[in-house]
């Protein structure tokens, strides 16, 4: 049988979006549902949302990505088309240990999108390259 959890998660996020659009808030049940599905990640993600840490970065070419300011102040890049985040938690907990579906930054992105709390940022195409793959020296 195929995995059901992504569908469940997607539906929960949609419900949150619907709920928020109608009542400008999220009910307690939805919050608990978030916690149930995503675990402790949900709490940290909500904290990131509270702090408006999510930015949606677009460039003139149409490419877009997300940047999230982590709780340490560090900026992480997450892609808009697949689940990827540059934070170590993602590579460890999601990729290797398969303990979480998402890291807190990706979940924060979804929640910010659902609640319309993404900050919009426009960069040049060149800057977008650097954001997607930062240069190191």
């Amino acid at each position: 049988m195929d995995a059901i959890l992504p569908t469940v998660a997607e539906e929960l996020l949609r419900e949150i979006k619907r709920n928020y659009q109608e009542t400008s808030q999220i009910t307690d049940e939805l919050l608990l549902g978030l916690k149930f599905i995503f675990g402790p990640t949900a709490l940290y993600a909500l904290d990131l949302v509270d702090q408006r840490s999510v930015s949606h970065v677009t460039s003139p070419s149409g490419r877009s990505t997300f940047q999230v300011v982590g709780s340490s102040g560090k900026m992480y890049t997450c892609f808009a088309s697949c689940h990827y985040c540059s934070c170590p938690a993602f590579s460890f907990s999601v990729l290797r240990k398969n303990d979480n579906m998402l890291c807190k930054h990706i979940l924060a992105i979804y929640l910010s999108q659902a609640m319309g709390l993404c900050q919009e940022l426009t960069v040049t195409d060149k800057q977008m390259c650097d954001i997607l793959f930062p240069k190191e020296d």
């Binding site: 490419r63 088309s81 697949c82 990827y84």
Partner: peptide, 19 residues
Amino acid sequence: CGSADGALISGLLLDSAAH
């Protein structure tokens, strides 16, 4: 290379294809 590298290149390729 660790899983993060694999994820990055896969994610970037998917992102480019999606774009």
